[in-house]
Amino acid sequence: MSRTYLIIAEHRDGKLRQVALEALQAAVIASGDGDSLSAVVLGSQLDSLAGELSSYPLSDIHVIEHDSLIHYNAEAYLAALSPVLDSVQPDAVFTGHTAIGRDLAPAIAAKLQAGQLSDVIAIEPSDGQIVYTRPLYAGKAFEKKIVQDSRSVVTVRPNNIPAAQPTEGHQARIIKVDTPANSLRTVVKEVVRKTSGKVDLTEAKIIVSGGRGVKSADGFKPLEELAGLLGGAVGASRGACDAGYCDYGLQIGQTGKVVTPEIYIACGISGAIQHLAGMSQSRIIIAINKDPEAPIFKIADYGIVGDLFEVVPLLTREFRKVLG
């Protein structure tokens, strides 16, 4: 029996997010011969975005354009998606485990009476079933799950599933969808973009993270400089956030965000269990700490025992030499 998959393709600043292509790839892995894949994009002025998507392995792309969709609004997005869900009748919906995906997916799952697999890091077909791997306790443990005989909604964690590749010469059909008129109970008054031009923490390939050892908000400056040079993002431990040195939005750990970058540089972070849960799946971990006994060194690939205010600027200088 052929199945239909719907990918909600997220975009930002006029570009497809990497995680949208990862969600698409997840659907590609889950699908079999004869299954059909559709995508949906919401927002305004989406022509070039839909064009970009059309070369990927999709049969059609539903484009929903409306002023009420420029900023994310759960109610407006759900109402706009409703006719697409009705016409596509997806067996499975895939999207990113992002601010939008985390918020939207459970509502869709409830609407479809579907099972949901959140924050999925791997997908493999096995004996006619699709097996999804996801973290528990922020990565202190993992579980493999299957969906019982029902529809499903899947959110994939950024940076874990390879991005889908365009198919040469392929052209997906683009379908414009009208938004139903309705009165919304939720109004977005203002969006303050604090992250404009910055690399999203969960999607960053390199993270330079600070703990209590940075000592102040100003103490993050050398870390920001290094992250900027490497095209990475700045993160923080709970200690640094609780001390008021930075925004909670930067917190990495069991409370906060779980990240899996290529390189994680922990500066002045001792390595509490709750922090390790959020970053120990990074490919390479570098620890910089004055205390040679700090637990972070037990899981670090490379350690430098020293004052981060001395080490980090020197590292920045060395990287600059290499990267030109």
Partner: peptide, 17 residues
Amino acid sequence: KTSQVELFLPPARQAGQ
């Protein structure tokens, strides 16, 4: 709607250099 088929711990990370 979903069920767990396996539960496991991640491989322990070794201390590097």
